[in-house]
């Protein structure tokens, strides 16, 4: 084996190890491979968004900078979205005082959002996103543009986690506890 071949073999071995480690880490971390890995990326584009609530009042997300912000893209026509939201209500109630702020961005009509929010006693803002919100979610790694999609932003304003599909409570608690 020439020196060049040895170097090449070593490089491949290192690259393989790094890829394996990344994969294992991703597995341990529970990162959802259905999303583009955005962890550590600046979430300024998301926190810079201002959307109306169901009464038309503009709600800038920037007001929650410094908190752990959980942005959930959802719709009333999305059953898995409806299934996970009661857990978000409980988590908001229990961890809100410690700096967690949930924000729902609905791809839906205001009257439908209001009806479900009332049914759920929703204790966090439900903003009206429209189809533009799907595009916004794609910039945050939602490669399929599907729902539910959740982005967790840390206190420093960086993406800590993205999830396509239901974010189960134990995983949610683990991530939030780590960030608080």
């Amino acid at each position: 084996m020439t020196t060049r071949q040895v170097r090449w073999a070593l490089l491949c071995a290192v690259a393989g190890f790094v890829a394996l480690a990344a994969g294992i880490y991703a597995g341990i971390d529970g990162r959802d491979s259905l999303t583009v890995d955005m962890r550590g990326k600046d979430a300024a584009a998301l926190l810079g968004v201002s959307l109306p609530d169901t009464k038309g009042k503009e709600t800038p997300l920037a007001q929650w900078k410094g908190k752990v912000v959980v942005v959930n893209f959802w719709a009333t026509w999305c059953v898995p979205c409806r299934e996970e939201m009661p857990e978000f209500v409980v988590t908001q109630r229990e961890l809100g005082g410690r700096g967690v702020q949930f924000v729902g961005i609905a791809i839906d009509q205001p009257d439908k959002i209001d009806a479900f929010a009332a049914e759920l006693n929703l204790n966090y803002p439900a903003l009206v996103g429209g189809f533009g919100a799907i595009e916004l979610s794609k910039t945050l790694g939602n490669r399929y543009g599907a729902l539910p999609f959740t982005v967790i932003v840390d206190r420093a304003g960086r993406v800590a986690h993205t999830q396509l599909g239901r974010l189960k409570e134990p995983q949610l608690r683990t991530i939030l506890t780590h960030l608080l």
Binding site: G23, A26, G27, D32, P80, G165, R166
Partner: peptide, 20 residues
């Protein structure tokens, strides 16, 4: 690579989806 390894059992929707 990561898609295959990182899919994990925690990925709520499995390792892969189809575009609509």
């Amino acid at each position: 690579m990561i898609a295959a390894l990182g899919a994990g059992d925690t990925a709520a929707a499995g390792p892969k989806l189809l575009e609509p």
